[in-house]
Nucleic acid binder design. Structure first.
Lengths: 190, 190, 190, 190
DNA sequence: GATGAATGAGTGTTCATTCAT
DNA sequence: CATGAATGAACACTCATTCAT
């Protein structure tokens, strides 16, 4: 027998993201994805049980890559502000460097499929970071506001900027980014 | 194109939003939309040139309803903070009261179709509000930061909150909303 | 609009029987059926909700044609033996003259689909005939044996003969048929 | 073709019958059959040249098991009536005890594949029994009617009873069975 | 001998759109 | 103006079979 080719699974994940980028989530068909991955449509069903499984699996893998990327600079020895800054910067970098991957995560998150994934599992890697935020609140460094709201101030602006076409004009501008981070930090810090 | 029976066009717009809500953007077919609107599929093509036209038209109309709703309390005689507060509140109300309409705007905005709409035209109603912000910067009330970044701090949190399931826990909580607005205002004001 | 074409539904029924005859029940695909009926595969779904519906509907219609054909000579004024003889003869004629229709009924009856049809409804036309048999038992003309067993003696031989390739050698032989009927009648009559 | 591992071939035969029972003749795929037999789909092609070969081979083997079973009590020393009675009883037992096997024979016999099997070979085991019937005719014990017609009276009722759902009510009823045999015997005997 | 990976051809079904009325 | 019938193209998916190991 031929041995199962793990690269083929990866190729299908990448092809999925590519096709979704080019055709949109709604028009991404298994035929197009298979062709882009260089395999027969039927082969897809060896590695994934159906289209939803392919889309969901691609989401999980990509979302994990994202958290790995974002949290790689996290260091509990660093100050809270440094950690938040690193978090913020890495997120911006990811969205800038891997726009297709980020767009895929975004589109999947807004699709009905999101309701079938175990979101708790995907939140797990962020545990330490959440802990650091909680500590910050306890120590009076951060305002005592609901965590989701705090996160919305940290996350939303960078995503908004990176996503919008207007964001293009901010590319590579370290100053603007620092300014944005300052705004966010001022908003949440006491 | 002008047609006598404007009612039918509206029905199709509403049906589009309904079906997208129930089936998702990807699974919203013209047959289902027509049936939901109570007309024959062929009738749809009297009012719209094709499916894309229907979807885009629905987006434009809904987006205009949104701006009308949001800006209805704007009053150039009021203070800047009051206007921003009204803007913020009305947005939150819209997302809360018309979740289907907002979801449709959201989904359409993330689809490839968005590239074919004249975004300038949709921004027009916000002209006065933008002017007020510019004045605020000039008068030193607001920080001198790029407008999109400023808007991201105003808009993103409320959208984030309203959209996320976590947002559910904040429903009807005037205190939380005011707190969020304070955060946003603190972030952008000098 | 075009008016719904009832002949098209009939054409699909006939095409179904034809394809099942030529390719077998297992290999009868909607594509082949549609092509044989001279319509696009999609058209089939205007008249039938799915393949099972097409197959089942064809069965019901054909089975009704069969009972109409078989019972057309039934006359409650005639003697029981004459009625049974007419029943027997008509069945043999049907199987001989419409072998494809009969084969379709046969194949469908042996498929899993048969479990989803209301067999009671299909038995309704035979009510009078069953009544006559019951009367015959009461009057001592027929043996007092379970009705299904009695029917098996009436039906099975003619079906068996007509179906088997051996039956071919009996075609058109009025004498053999009469002989077979005599056997059956002797078996069930007192 | 001869192969070492006859066990595997048997397993595939049994699996074929099982899958046909569970899924129907039309939906019995080689993948399902292989899985049920506990072998890889490719292995199947070592023992059988293709799917038709597998189905046909399964038919031949099962049909031979049936004739072995039916004829096991045949004894040329016994009276004709006893032999016919044994034949009849064994058939009923087989259909009752091995409904899946019988159903498979039945379904295969009604499929187009039956046209490719050498039916003469399958009739061979019945030679002695046929001879006995012929002797019975010669000796005036049986009516002088075509053999297939005679067989139809012997076989058809038991099959009809055993197969129909009505037959269920006759289960385990020795009296009913004897009654049915008497009817058949009366029909064919002089 | 035995396997699971791989696939071209096919499955039943839905699609957006056009046509005749 | 409005319709339901009609369809070619596409859909997600399964098939029997072959291939490389």
């Amino acid at each position: 027998m031929r041995h199962r080719d793990e690269t083929k699974k990866q190729a299908l994940h990448k092809a999925t993201i590519q096709v979704v980028k080019e055709e949109g989530f709604a028009s991404a068909s298994v035929n197009k994805i298979a062709k882009k991955a260089g395999v027969a449509p039927a082969t897809l069903y060896i590695y994934f049980s159906n289209k939803d499984d392919l889309l969901t699996s691609t989401f999980m893998v990509t979302k994990t890559e994202l958290s790995d990327y974002i949290l790689s600079d996290f260091d509990s020895a660093k100050s809270l502000k440094d950690n938040v800054h690193a978090f913020w910067t890495r997120l911006y970098d990811y969205v800038s460097n891997y726009p297709d991957d980020y767009q895929y995560i975004d589109q999947f998150s807004h699709s009905p499929l999101i309701q079938h994934v175990d979101t708790n599992a995907l939140e797990a890697p962020y545990q330490e970071f959440h802990k650091a935020l909680s500590d910050g609140i306890e120590q009076g460094v951060l305002k005592d506001i609901p965590k989701p709201m705090m996160l919305s101030f940290i996350l939303a602006p960078v995503v908004f900027l990176a996503r919008s076409r207007l964001g293009a004009s901010l590319d590579n501008s370290a100053h603007d980014l620092d300014q944005a981070f300052s705004l966010a930090w001022d908003a949440i810090s006491d």
